[in-house]
């Protein structure tokens, strides 16, 4: 019975989770929230993680009701992510591993999301839509890799949403995306904006600059309400995501979709994906904010899969990397 502890801090969430054979024993988390109109910067975010690491660690151990010696392996996010927050979190993980004398595993953040999604939902071999503040990818498993079929060619969908929230000066609490989602529920007038799908790839930067340039004028003229703009943005960019996911499904002849990553807890996105799936007799799998949003348990779970298949990260390779593509990891724990 492998017990793994996972440390995640690649963006503005610090999470530490403990997982025992696919059962989440604890998964506490803290989010660094910036004032309206401001994004999070590496230095301040890293500081937030440092300040909270020991408290969250204690919570994780207490809630799981285990002692340090019960842990079999210490897992941390190796990347991708922001340099300073990644390092500030991994330092804690590596120190703990030394103190407790446990092996260490550096985990790819995206793989963490995928494996956690599969564990929680029971999806077997899904086409994965991975959508977060820093990533937008359509992924499918083949020949020991999670292969990227489509991705954003510029900014991530979550980044587009966050930056638009800043234009409207929406609160970052609990997250800009959540507040856009709530506003969008009250909007109904669709603004026509660029729709950028290239094969299985998408682009959001044109949409963002279109909105940044026009938002104020459209609001001032009274033509559109802030709610309408949130609605229009969501309807357009989510349609692009659902369309590219469907393209990948058709190409791979897949009949399952799994949505992971922070934007994946958006219920409108889930609803749209669900309708697309029902139109082609496929099945949708999604999770709620506990597991969609960055958390420690996902790193612990992916790490324990690697550990059980004989993997350990050599001490001199326990580094972090801002760029770490999903398809770089050999998926040793799947035989299909």
């Amino acid at each position: 019975m492998v017990i793994a502890i996972g440390f995640e801090g690649s963006a503005n969430k610090l999470g530490i989770g403990i997982v025992k054979e696919g059962v989440v024993l604890s998964n506490p988390r803290r989010t660094y929230i910036t004032p309206p109109g401001e994004g999070f910067l590496p230095r301040e975010t890293a500081q937030h993680h440092r300040q909270n690491a020991l408290i969250v660690l204690q919570e994780a151990l207490e809630e799981a009701k285990i002692k340090a010696e019960d842990v079999d392996v210490v897992c941390y996010t190796k990347g991708p992510g922001m340099g300073a927050p990644l390092v500030s979190t991994s330092v804690v993980a590596l120190t703990v591993a030394q103190l407790w004398n446990k092996p260490v595993i550096g985990v790819n953040h995206c793989i963490g999301h995928i494996e956690m999604g599969r564990l929680i939902t029971g999806a077997d071999n899904p086409t994965v839509l991975y959508v977060s503040g820093g990533n937008t990818q359509v992924i499918a498993y083949a020949r020991k890799r999670y292969r990227i079929f489509g991705e954003t060619i510029d900014i991530a969908v979550g980044n587009c949403l966050d930056r638009f929230a800043r234009v409207l000066k929406l609160s970052n609490d609990p997250s800009p995306g959540y507040n856009i989602e709530q506003m969008a529920k009250k909007g109904n007038k669709l603004l026509k904006m660029p729709y950028a799908v290239k094969g299985m790839d998408v682009s959001f930067s044109g949409i963002l600059s279109f909105m940044e340039e026009r938002a104020q004028g459209l609001l001032d003229s009274g033509e559109y309400t802030p709610e309408d703009l949130c609605f229009s943005l969501q309807e357009t960019i989510f349609a692009m995501l659902v369309e590219t996911t469907e393209r990948a499904m058709a190409h791979c002849e897949s009949s399952e979709v799994l949505i992971v990553g922070g934007v994946g807890c958006n219920l409108r996105l889930q609803e749209m994906m669900g309708i697309m799936c029902s139109e082609r007799n496929a099945k949708l799998f999604a999770t709620d904010e506990r597991f969609c949003i960055d958390n420690g348990a996902m790193i612990a779970h992916a790490g324990s899969e690697m550990f059980k298949h004989g993997w350990k990260t050599p001490w001199n390779e326990t580094t972090c990397t801002q760029r770490y593509r999903t398809d770089e990891v050999e998926v040793i724990w799947r035989d299909d």
Binding site: S10, A11, N12, P80, G81, M82, H109, C110, S132, G133, G134, N135, E151, T152, I153, A156, G158, G262, D294, Q322, R323, Y324, R325
Partner: peptide, 10 residues
Amino acid sequence: ARGRKRTMVG
């Protein structure tokens, strides 16, 4: 090259 360089945060 642009594709390979794309930073992926969070």
